[in-house]
Amino acid sequence: MRALLAGGGTAGHTSPLLATAAVLRDEGVEVTCLGTPRGLEVTLIPEAGYPLELVPPVPLPRRPGRAMAAVPARLRAAVKATREVVERIDPDVIVGFGGYVSVPAYLVARRTGIPLVVHEGNAVPGIANKLGARFTQHVATSFPGTDLRHGEYVGLPIRRQISGLDRAAARAEGRAHFGLAADAPTLLVTGGSQGARRINHAVAAAAPDLADAGVQVLHAAGRPEEVDVSTRPGGPAYVVASYIDRIDLAYAAADLVVCRAGANTVTEVAAVGLPAAFVPLPIGNGEQAHNAHPVVQAGGALLIDDEAFTASWVDQVVVPLVCDPHRLATMSAAASDLVPRDADEQLARMILDAADRR
């Protein structure tokens, strides 16, 4: 069996694609991925050992204008390139995870009659997947209540190193890996693969307050130059990295995480029971705040608007929380049972079932 998986641009599309691809590969499926030259998939997919086919990107503007007028020509070129890939690979099923590259894949699937599966990563569906859901009954969502035609809630596929993580058992290894003290309250800070200026500046400015409370920090800054922190001799560590490859060990090391609320991040921290302070990205259609709501409503996380996330808020809210083991344990328990850890297997089963109907 052969499957063509389309998705890329950001980790939000690429990570669930790779998690699902791993299950399909274990089932003996020959997986090929479809992406564009602009996204993270150019690096991440080949590193994971999957062949990657590239087609021209087709950005979908949210407002009328010159960019909107260019869409038809760009889309025709992308559909033509995708059709050539499909004719060469002859997949039994096409799977789309949203983003620019999914639109031509959906159109080619419709025109060729190849079974199509759509996976929506966010609580609020994007334009591409709203289109794809019109062409198939095989539609999976990451969050309950997502308003998408034919949507079936299966959860968001996450990497096995995350879904199988025992934070308590791996805590000592995680802290040793990053050079952190074994017994100090530990805050993980991340703004995603590209970093987040607001989060970087606010937490860095609050570094003296964190140090006064004995809190050590592991900060994945994306842009380390935005985090100017001087540690005190003998004081708690403040470790700054551009990017953390072993995010599983970072989750294990942390007592609390400050982060954006992308679907992948929300699902991962909830799955491993890591209490969170979510700072949703203040652009787009508000999907990040919607992603965070189930965890926040269950008591597993806090939600703070981007403009309200300041050094003062870190001092007044984050510092007392990361130093409160009882409250953290309560939040961890509230989050850990919210999201399915086997979404990769559930989505793979949907894909295999769709292919069998060809």
Rank of each mutant, 00 (worst) to 15 (best):
T32I: 09
V239T: 05
G99S: 09
G9W: 04
G39R: 03
L75G: 07
A254W: 03
V139W: 08
D90F: 03
A6Q: 01
A292C: 10
V317I: 13
L188R: 00
T136P: 01
E287N: 06
G195R: 05
A128L: 08
D248K: 07
G286S: 02
P185V: 13
N291V: 06
L156M: 01
G35N: 06
D356Y: 04
D324P: 01
A22L: 02
R327A: 15
A204C: 04
E47R: 15
L180V: 05
G99H: 04
R74M: 14
G12D: 10
T310M: 12
P64D: 11
P294T: 04
A169D: 05
R349W: 08
G214V: 12
V239R: 13
P340I: 11
A176W: 01
D209A: 15
R341Y: 07
A3V: 10
G273Q: 08
H326N: 10
G99D: 09
L131I: 15
A140P: 03
H177C: 03
R232H: 06
K80I: 11
G299M: 02
I283T: 14
I304L: 14
Q161H: 14
R358H: 10
L347K: 00
L116G: 08
G234K: 08
A289Q: 12
I94L: 14
N291P: 02
A69S: 12
S242I: 06
A67H: 13
A271V: 14
I94E: 11
G35T: 12
T10E: 04
T10F: 10
R63I: 01
T43C: 04
E268H: 05
V317S: 14
A172P: 01
A170Q: 09
G151L: 14
P294S: 02
D147I: 08
C33R: 00
D90L: 13
G284N: 00
P224S: 13
A19V: 03
